[in-house]
């Protein structure tokens, strides 16, 4: 038993250069090439495009989740926010013909308002994030049922459908949602690395007390972080309903988007204990999951084993990435 004891010795070494996103990228490309060799159809442009496209909603939400986890928090309510937004704006597009130009800012505002509620609970009432957002998960989820009044979104307006599927720039064969994900990821990267706010997030995640003593506005930082997570979850809901054309009151919560988004952030190399985030890893992580599922279908694996395959690939990807102490 002495060896295992030694293994568990707390590690206080300097954080290594982050390589998780590179490992993930290599694994993802290896899967694409490997499956592509057996089934050339897998490597065709339209399939690659579709795999990235189906990663967009989770990718957007996981970026928000990454911000929250960097502050050593967690947001379980993202799935409920996503579902609420999908139902609200899906119904609004069909019933009152809400134009997309109005829906976009409104959805960000809705998400930010819901997210700031989480932020208030965490920063001011000091409820542990997992509990605060577990509570709001039920509250926001119930709100979705009230708003939808037992009905569902069956089809969205053409304007919405175009936003979810068509290419924004004619001639450039990249669908609008993929561009949106790229834009959000770049902006998030800029905020994290080149703005004071980004440094504050990492400082709060590393040591909230030290950050407070250093004069960093801890509460305000937390509030903003949960607002961002809410806004992105809401945006994810809008993209979801535009892309799929349909939504029900269990959209988001029914698929456990909250757990999936956390998984993606952690697979991407973000530390659950906070203080370190990896946005590139998050984006690649979301595409990685989408590639894994599609690969399983292409390899004719029976459908009941998909989630097992997903689970094994998560373990593999996380183990192959840089090993760090502090797990467990």
């Amino acid at each position: 038993m002495s060896t295992t004891t030694l293994d568990a010795a707390p590690r206080k070494r300097k954080p290594r250069r982050e390589v998780r996103e590179i490992t993930l990228l290599v694994v993802t490309i290896a899967i694409v090439l490997g499956v592509g060799l057996i089934k050339p159809q897998f490597m065709r442009y339209d399939n690659l495009e579709f795999m990235v496209l189906s990663a967009v909603v989770l990718g957007l939400i996981a970026i928000g989740q990454t911000f929250v986890i960097m502050t050593s928090g967690i947001d379980l309510s993202v799935s409920a926010v996503m579902g609420l937004s999908a139902v609200v704006f899906g119904l609004a597009s069909t019933t009152i013909h809400l134009p997309l130009a109005a829906a976009l800012p409104l959805c960000l505002i809705l998400g930010a308002v819901l997210g700031s509620f989480n932020g208030l609970l965490v920063a001011w009432v000091r409820i542990p994030p997992i509990i605060a957002t577990l509570g709001t998960y039920s509250l926001f989820g119930g709100l979705t049922f009230i708003v939808s009044n037992g009905t569902q979104v069956d089809q969205v307006s053409n304007q919405f459908a175009a936003f979810g599927n068509a290419n924004l720039i004619p001639g450039l064969p990249i669908p609008t949602p993929v561009l949106a994900l790229a834009g959000v990821a770049l902006f998030a990267w800029f905020v994290l690395n080149h703005m004071v706010f980004g440094r504050n997030i990492l400082a709060v995640g590393n040591n909230a007390v030290a950050a407070y003593n250093a004069g960093i506005p801890v509460k305000r930082t937390l509030l903003f972080v949960y607002m961002i997570a809410g806004a992105l979850a809401s945006f994810g809901g809008l993209v979801f309903v535009a892309y799929t054309g349909s939504a029900t009151a269990t959209t988001g919560t029914g698929d456990h988007v909250e757990l999936q988004s956390i998984a993606i952030a952690l697979i991407g190399g973000t530390l659950i204990s906070g203080g370190r985030g990896n946005l590139a890893g998050t984006v690649i992580g979301s595409i990685f999951l989408s590639v894994v599922i599609t690969a399983l279908v292409f390899l004719h694996v029976p459908a009941i084993w998909y989630s097992a395959g997903e689970g094994l690939m998560i373990v593999a990807a996380v183990t192959l990435g840089a090993r760090r102490g502090g797990a467990g």
């Binding site: 659950i272 029976p302 097992a308």
Partner: peptide, 27 residues
């Protein structure tokens, strides 16, 4: 074992194993 040997955070480790266990249950 997954948590201590492979050094994976409990949250992600048990999420992954839950996928595997539920596949086996369905099968």
């Amino acid at each position: 074992i997954v948590i201590t040997r492979l050094r994976i955070e409990p949250l992600i480790a048990t999420l992954a194993t839950s996928f595997i266990y539920s596949s086996v249950a369905t099968a």
